[in-house]
């Protein structure tokens, strides 16, 4: 599905504070499976995730997504691909405060120009599916941790993406909520979604949901293998 070839990403190139975030990464992510990116903070997990998720362009190397070369695609087109292919779940969920859970879920679909009414209906269905339909009209700052988590997942699913990307999703969750999160990931995997999670939380990478673990250190992949 996604192929990375010899990817390198440099920040502040040519300046004294030049910093190589990832170097020589070659990786293939297959469709329909769950992959965990494991490694300490600063190991380049997040940078790799953002390149995989078409958020950032590598300084060098090649990326193909579903047989299409997307390496030097400008932001205008990368965004479209990102919107249609990926759903993102962030650390701390990053919901927008002051608006309702429903609106938060609908936001990523606004640029598609979908009719407001049908979009609202779809968003409601997703919230119902995740058992928080009752909280749809509450402002997000009044949601509990578990409800916020579900809202964030619903938002990631609104554009019906093939791939779900989660960056340290359990970093601020207690054990019960972390386990619940992995349960939802399991369901999504069963529905045929590809799951990509960056985490250094054992609850994530030791979970039986995960099929494959890619371990990173200092911007390079140190090991990559299927979970037995």
């Amino acid at each position: 599905m996604i192929h990375l070839q010899n990817i390198r990403k440099v920040f502040n190139a040519g300046r004294p504070n030049e910093f190589v975030a990832i170097e020589g990464v070659t990786l293939a992510i297959d469709s329909q499976g769950a992959t965990a990116l494991k490694g300490p903070s600063g190991s380049g997990k997040t940078t790799l995730l953002s390149i995989l998720g078409c958020m950032a362009r590598p300084t060098a190397g090649r990326i193909t997504l579903q047989e299409r070369e997307i390496t030097s695609l400008p932001e205008r087109f990368l965004t479209e691909i990102r919107r249609e292919t990926f759903g993102f779940i962030f650390q701390q969920f990053n919901l927008i405060k002051g608006i309702t859970a429903l609106e938060n879920v609908m936001l990523p679909a606004y640029p598609n120009g979908e009719n407001y009414v049908s979009l609202k209906k779809r968003a409601m269905e997703l919230l119902d599916l995740l058992n928080i339909g009752g909280k749809a009209t509450s402002k997000v700052e009044w949601l509990s941790g578990g409800e916020a988590q579900r809202t964030a997942i619903a938002r990631a699913l609104i554009n019906n993406p093939a791939i779900i990307i989660a960056d340290e999703p359990t970093a601020h969750l207690d054990t019960r909520l972390s386990a619940e999160f992995m349960e939802i990931m399991r369901q999504l995997k069963q529905e045929g979604k590809t799951i990509l999670i960056a985490s250094h939380d054992p609850i994530v990478y030791e979970s039986d949901v995960i099929d494959r673990i890619v371990e990173m250190r200092d911007g390079r992949i140190v090991s990559s293998g299927d979970v037995p």
């Binding site: 958020m55 205008r76 965004t79 606004y110």
Partner: peptide, 15 residues
């Protein structure tokens, strides 16, 4: 943060 979230979840610069 909001603009960052919007862009990350699929809003384009033009949007």
């Amino acid at each position: 943060r909001e603009i960052g979230i919007l862009k990350a979840t699929g809003w384009e610069t033009t949007d």
